[in-house]
Amino acid sequence: MAEPAVNVKLIKERLAFLKGGRFKAWLEICAHCAYCSDSCFFYLAHDKDPKYMPAYKVKQTLDKLYKKKGEVTWEELEKMADIAYGDCTACRRCSLYCPFGIDVAVMIAAVRGILCGQGLAPKGLQDAAKHHWETGNQMAITEEDFVETCKWMEEESEEEMPGLKIPIEKKGAETLYVLNAREVKFYPQDIAEAAMILYAAGEDWTFPDLGWDMTNLAMFAGNAQVMAHSAKLVYDAAKRLEVKKIITSE
């Protein structure tokens, strides 16, 4: 099977766009001192296999992309994808252990952005991002299904807590409650339980009818456009309904 062509022009554009003061300084001054090694759980969990030490992950990805001016092969990009998506969670712990405070996670996130532009993000993340873009939630649940699920859970809770309501799109409520789309699809009981807590606490709350999924898998994929869109849906819902605060599940 022929390998897909690398869009070198796009990589070059991204690299130029990304090269701000931080990346420039970090890539230059990393002392290769390995103060960061023991801070990374990937490194520890693999019995201190050196290929999981944080600075090495940058050296194999972003540093290499800059050194080669973006002119890399598909095979090299695939190796980078294994590292950027598989060997680092972008947790930022190592930046607390580095004498220069080099933020490996931010650089790995940048690499994901580049790889995502080449279609190399893991399929599950790509699909979720696509769903979020098209339907406003990562599981492509329709508004109808969402409303119905809430109604169903309202009825289910009736016996335990008479009078409990699950408000949707109630303007002027105090609190906006947003959750993970998986809860709606696979664990609807979570909605009932959260509603009970909010009811018992006497909260004046509401779900929005759009922007109720607070997950952002596009961020993990490195898809900046959908990442911004997903966050903005929740932000817009809070504005629209004039709430004072947002509560998120998980």
């Binding site: 990393c30 002392a31 930046s95 607390l96 580095c98």
Partner: peptide
């Protein structure tokens, strides 16, 4: 070269100190 860390050390440390400290209240030491 990387020896420029003599000066850049202060810049990158100031950044991570503020990024973790001012934004999240987390210490970087």
């Amino acid at each position: 070269t990387r020896l420029s860390h003599i000066f850049l050390f202060f810049m990158t440390r100031a950044h991570i100190g503020s990024e973790m400290g001012q934004r999240r209240g987390a210490a970087t030491w």
